[in-house]
Design a protein around this nucleic acid. Structure first.
Length: 591
RNA sequence: GCGCCCGUAGCUCAGCUGGAUAGAGCGACGGCCUCCGGAGCCGUAGGUCGCAGGUUCGAAUCCUGCCGGGCGCGCCA
């Protein structure tokens, strides 16, 4: 503990770099132009001719009908950045360029180093429900589940880290018509083999599903039995429920294994599946009817939210109850919204669901709002994402045109990472360590490529690119982290009582990058765009590498410099590791 | 037909509330090895930001219309 520290570990005092500058500007704006302009964003951004530039004068100039340059001068006259910035210049039409002092950067970095949160602010806690992953029972997880699972997991980590109460919801597909055929098929196979569902191997799941489907499509008698079985299931027949339970258990234990391998923080406790909502569908429909929202159309019970039209230009319905009396998925989705706001108390609900479902979700949100289940105090957001494409730029499939299983993807990621390590591994890791590192690199690469570009866009799946040690990849970030750890190991850790002194250009660049961590994490939570964190970490890794290249640590010219640089290594490694962790990626000590 | 999303360097992608010469990585070309980790570093070349208008002191960013690609559009989830 540094003697000069302000004697507190109160996390409330953590304010990010941008927060600090913003409040100083706000005071200056009020002092120069009056109270009515309080809260005007200073429009701060990094600049290549200074550390930061504030562009507020340009906008304010127009608003006040005065030359922006004049505004900038009046603003700077009131701007108190004593000790914080030693160079404040007005340039061009009215840009305010700031250069922070080395002393201030050094001090802030000392605080960040001592802060367990590394400068990440603690936001006002909110209850956030995140709906993600959502595989189907009796089917293998495949590429189609990758993005939801990874993006959802990262957002959950980020929001949790900012202090929010995150409720993960794995909306498993465990109910509905397919279960009739699955159960009948299960009965058929256990009759012939004498085995129960429990003896089905996990790998058989997909085959099992396909067999059932084939029989359903080709065998009228089987199809008929299946339909009757659905009725039995829905009416709560004990034997049927038992068989259904076997299938669900088998699948969930399988999903659990996948999540564990992936390092995704989803457990059986997060499962809140379709069957959970089944008893709530009647009440939801009744409530819609009571509110006068329900209309009968072609025998189905529908809600027509305004603003949606069909192919023919007619109002587009959200079908709550089908004409056969069964509930559609819209009913389940509505029940889920209601449960999340009313029972779980969510003020924010995130749906990490593919972009094609945009219209459906918008309609669900609209109807939920009409029904009062999505009050203005709660916001529901569709966290949409694009598709994973193969080399041919079409939906990613196996060479044979089949679905790519997630388990196979994990295997291949690790195998490929291991091959690379074995080919050129200077750290001389032993067998066990190699496998462990290969796992972290392989899985990390898979995750990073999914998170590192704007989620709404499609991306092309390419093993070589994602596993490359150059460029914006997980291995590059992991390597930068491992290098700082290596230096720290050799030094035997940081020096007690050391303070950071920022002098060299590479030290300044690193300091500025490190102090931006809190703002980036907050912006990810706000925009729900994990790729911003990736872009940040790539930049951090780059400036860290430049620092290591240009500023000798162990061979520094004097003890104070050595201690300062060791501390810089320490903060860098922590921020890199924490940043990667928020993406769900592990950072090996050695690689 | 209507709606939504995407279109930035040869390739893969950044570019936050409009701001100063549009940035990376890969690939290409040219350098740097007695290196605290070469799985590295430095440099060069390379872009009418799909096209055309409009708003603005200022547009990759906002508005309109086209072109190209993808995905949706009543009883599958």
């Amino acid at each position: 503990m540094r003697a000069c520290s302000p004697v507190t570990t109160d996390i409330d005092i953590v304010s990010t770099l941008l927060d600090t500058l913003t409040s100083r500007f706000d005071k200056a704006i009020v002092a120069a132009f009056g109270e009515e302009h309080a809260g005007t964003p200073p429009v701060l951004r990094r600049s290549n001719r200074a550390d930061f530039q504030a562009d507020v004068a340009l906008g304010l100039g127009r608003k006040l009908g005065r030359p922006p340059r004049e505004i900038a001068e009046a603003l700077v006259a009131k701007l108190d950045l004593a000790g914080l910035a030693d160079k404040i210049e007005i340039a061009g039409p009215g840009f305010v360029n700031l250069t922070l002092t080395d002393a201030w950067l050094s001090r802030e970095l000392d605080s960040a180093a001592a802060d367990a949160r590394l400068g990440v602010p603690a936001e006002t806690p909110e209850t956030v429900v995140i709906d993600y992953s959502s595989p189907n029972v009796a089917k293998e997880m495949h590429v189609g589940h990758v993005r939801s699972t990874l993006i959802g997991d990262s957002l959950a980590r980020v929001l949790e880290h900012l202090g929010h109460r995150v409720i993960r919801q794995n909306h498993l597909g465990d109910w509905g018509t397919p279960f009739g055929m699955l159960i009948e098929h299960l009965l058929d196979t256990s009759a012939t083999s004498g085995s129960e569902a429990a003896s089905l191997s996990i790998r058989d799941l997909d085959t099992f599903y396909r067999e059932a489907r084939a029989k359903f499509d080709g065998d009228a008698a089987f199809a008929d039995r299946s339909r009757k079985r659905v009725v039995l299931l829905q009416s709560g027949d004990a034997k049927t429920l038992e068989l259904w339970r076997q299938l669900v258990d088998l699948s969930t234990s399988y999903f659990g294994q996948i999540y564990e391998r992936l390092g995704v923080k989803l457990t059986s406790a997060d499962i809140c599946s379709e069957s959970f909502y089944n008893p709530k569908l009647g009440p939801v429909t009744d409530a819609l009817r009571d509110k006068g929202l329900l209309q009968e159309s072609d025998g189905a019970d529908c809600v027509f939210p305004p603003g949606f039209t069909s192919k023919e230009g007619n109002p587009l319905p959200l079908i709550v109850r089908k004409k056969d009396g069964g509930y559609g998925y819209a009913a389940t989705d509505l029940a889920a919204v209601r449960h999340r706001t009313e029972t779980l108390g969510a003020s924010r609900v995130l749906y990490v669901v593919g972009a094609p479902q945009q219209q459906h979700l918008t309609m669900v949100f609209a109807v939920a709002a009409m029904a009062g289940w999505l009050p203005s105090s709660a916001r529901a957001t569709h966290v949409a994402f694009g598709s994973i494409l193969g080399p041919d730029k079409k939906m990613f499939k196996t060479r044979e045109g089949g679905t790519v299983k997630l388990a196979d993807l994990l295997d291949e990621a690790i195998t490929r990472a291991l091959a690379i390590i074995e080919e050129k591994n200077p750290a001389h890791l032993d067998e066990t360590a190699r496998r462990d590192v290969a796992r972290m690199i392989g899985i990390g690469a898979l995750k990073y490529v999914d998170l590192s570009s704007d989620r709404v866009k499609d991306y092309v799946f390419d093993w070589n690119r994602m596993l490359a040690f150059d460029g914006n990849t997980a291995p590059y970030l992991q390597f930068a982290h491992a290098r700082t750890r290596s230096i720290l190991r050799k030094a035997g850790g940081t020096v007690a009582g050391a303070t950071i002194a920022v002098h060299a250009p590479e030290e300044r660049a690193l300091a500025l990058a490190l102090l931006g961590f809190g703002d980036v994490v907050a912006s990810v939570a706000d925009s729900l765009q994990p790729h911003r964190l990736c872009t940040y970490l790539f930049d951090l890794a780059t400036v860290t590498t430049a620092f290591l290249e240009n500023c000798p640590v162990l061979k520094a010219e004097d003890d104070a410099t050595r201690a300062s640089r060791l501390a810089l290594c320490e903060v860098s490694s922590k921020v890199l590791a924490r940043g990667l962790d928020l993406l769900g990626i592990e950072a090996p000590e050695v690689m």
